[in-house]
């Protein structure tokens, strides 16, 4: 695994090129171009604000922010695993032609999505300041949470990208799975709304604690529980290792399967 990582480091320029291409070509040809990276989350935020402060009113204070700080990490999660799942097949011409560490491909998708999350975070910070919630010193914990989520998502993307080469249905099934997963994760609602008897099950969902951590730091301005951190950390380590092993085993037959 260490030689694998060393090799990946050698190919950093390729990774950089792929991420840059992903970010650039996404809005290619559009009038606002790269600005969409910021406009998109901003427009989403405006929609949620209108919907939840005028139509579906809740008793949660500044519900749009409550939702938004959880939605940003969720969007990173879904766009990574869905983009990751198809990534090997999209790049099959390159894979068939030449050797390079195959991990680069899903890695570049996740990195591009992560970059997008960073840009969205800029919008989140600005709105937090404007809305009066403000930023606390616990914001310093945010990078740690983001890195742990990054590892978790990366592991899943490794796995799905490799599996999808063998079972092409996976990319379609994933659409349904992520939708169900979205409602099983406390994003549009809080953990306190979950019935007591199901609570244990919800905590088995790795994304539950991820979202809780983001919300604690950004919305409640408090340090997440130790158990939350522990859970995130465990899931991240498990998935990055598992994803790596699954990927490296399956990648050997990519060229023949593609």
């Amino acid at each position: 695994m260490i030689t694998g990582i060393k090799e990946l480091y050698g190919y950093r320029e390729m990774l950089r090129n792929l991420v840059r291409k992903d970010l650039r070509t996404r809005y290619k040809g559009s009038f606002l171009g790269f600005l969409w990276t910021f406009i998109n989350p901003l427009l989403q935020l405006i929609v949620y604000t209108i919907v939840f402060s005028t139509i579906m009113r809740t008793n949660i204070d500044k519900f749009y922010m409550y939702l938004f700080v959880a939605l940003i990490p969720w969007i990173f999660f879904t766009s990574s695993i869905q983009g990751g799942a198809t990534s090997i097949i999209t790049n099959k011409d390159l894979i068939k032609k030449i050797y390079f560490p195959r991990l680069i491909i899903p890695l570049s998708v996740v990195n591009a999505a992560f970059m997008n999350m960073l840009f969205s975070m800029v919008v989140v910070f600005i709105v937090l300041l404007i809305s009066g919630i403000g930023l606390s010193k616990y914001i310093l914990l945010l990078p740690l949470v983001m890195i742990l989520e990054y590892l978790f998502v990366l592991g899943l993307s490794f796995m799905f990208s490799a599996l999808n080469v063998y079972f092409r249905d996976l990319e379609h099934i994933l659409g349904i799975i992520t939708m169900v997963w979205f409602y099983l994760t406390p994003i549009v609602y809080g953990v306190d709304m979950i019935p007591e008897k199901y609570l244990g099950l919800f905590y088995l969902n790795p994304m539950t604690n991820m979202v809780i951590a983001y919300r604690d730091i950004l919305y409640y301005k408090k340090v997440p529980d130790f158990s939350t951190f522990g859970s995130i950390f465990a899931w991240s380590v498990i998935f990055i290792v598992l994803g790596y092993v699954v990927f490296q085993n399956l990648q050997k037959n990519f060229v023949e399967e593609l």
Binding site: G10, Y11, E13, F100
Partner: peptide
């Protein structure tokens, strides 16, 4: 060249 593993 980056696909051949060269840095910038």
């Amino acid at each position: 060249a980056s696909i051949f593993g060269l840095t910038k």
